[in-house]
């Protein structure tokens, strides 16, 4: 579904991604790990359509479409979901209004009928259960005054509502306590199917205890320097990143 070829991206003339190659197929879970500043978050926001970065070379193919050619909203409507490391607080925009607008824009794009108010509320009730999100949170403004854990749960809730084909979870585990981590991971696992895929970006092994990856990639200095099965995550947990740094110093 997703094919990244030789992707380069920079910000203010500083090259952060220096040739990424990655292929993701339906049903797969990929973990991308790596030390700070290796380009993990850049990769995910470039895929999501952030205009902060300049893509200088490479291509990204998503279900036969040139992803880099699409504005952020169309990438979402094509089935890409990006869970933010730092979800944005938007006072004055209610969760209900936000989600209904988003969902109906998806429907419009795909030539489907918009949901009625009652259908929407029903769907929202169902999905809230999946992520064990507090009812009150959805009555408030988007992320306003949410705790770190609530914000992350809210990301997964939105993912449940939008039913993406590919989800990119950017450091979803950061700032979560054990219980919140379990809830978030459970949510992701419940939404998993043979037709969708997940890219989990993380620093640590602990999220991968709950969301078990099929592939683990190590990103270092803007390149994927190593790919293996889930055992690589354990090795990294044990040995840290220094041996990788040493091996791929240039």
């Amino acid at each position: 579904m997703l094919e990244i070829k030789d992707l380069h991206a920079k910000i203010d003339d500083k090259e952060i991604l220096r040739g990424i190659n990655l292929t993701v197929k339906p049903g797969e879970v990929h973990a991308i790990m790596g030390p700070n500043g290796s380009g993990k978050s850049t990769l995910s926001s470039v895929l999501a359509g952030s205009e902060v970065f300049d893509v200088s070379a490479g291509e990204v193919n998503f279900y036969g479409k040139d992803l880099l050619d699409l504005p952020a909203e169309d990438r979402a409507r094509e089935g890409l979901f990006y869970s933010f490391q730092y979800p944005v607080e938007i006072p004055g925009v209610s969760m209900v209004n936000f989600m209904r607008t988003a969902l109906n824009e998806h429907k419009k794009y795909n030539d489907e009928k918009p949901l009625s108010a009652s259908e929407f509320l029903k769907l929202m009730r169902e999905k809230k259960k999946v992520v064990e999100i507090d009812s009150n949170l959805t009555n408030r403004s988007v992320n306003e005054g949410f705790s770190g854990g609530e914000k992350k749960k809210n990301e997964i809730f939105q993912m449940a509502m939008l039913e993406p084909k590919l989800s990119i979870l950017d450091e979803t585990d950061s700032g979560l306590d054990i219980d919140a981590l379990r809830i978030v991971a459970n949510g992701v696992n419940k939404l998993k199917s043979k037709d969708n895929a997940t890219i989990v970006i993380t620093h640590y092994q602990r999220l991968l205890d709950h969301i078990v990856p099929d592939f683990v990639h190590v990103l270092y200095k803007g390149r994927i320097v190593m790919s293996a099965g889930k055992e690589l995550a354990l090795e990294l947990e044990e040995k840290g990143y220094d041996w990788i740094k040493k091996q791929f110093e240039d």
Binding site: A76, I90, F98
Partner: peptide
């Protein structure tokens, strides 16, 4: 905020309206 809304599939114009309204709210 614009990017957040757009990354959920909300188009630029609609996102603008939401944010203007949020400001006036």
């Amino acid at each position: 905020s614009m990017f957040y809304l757009r990354s959920r599939g909300i188009g630029k114009d609609e996102a603008r309206i939401l944010l203007m309204y949020a400001f006036a709210y």
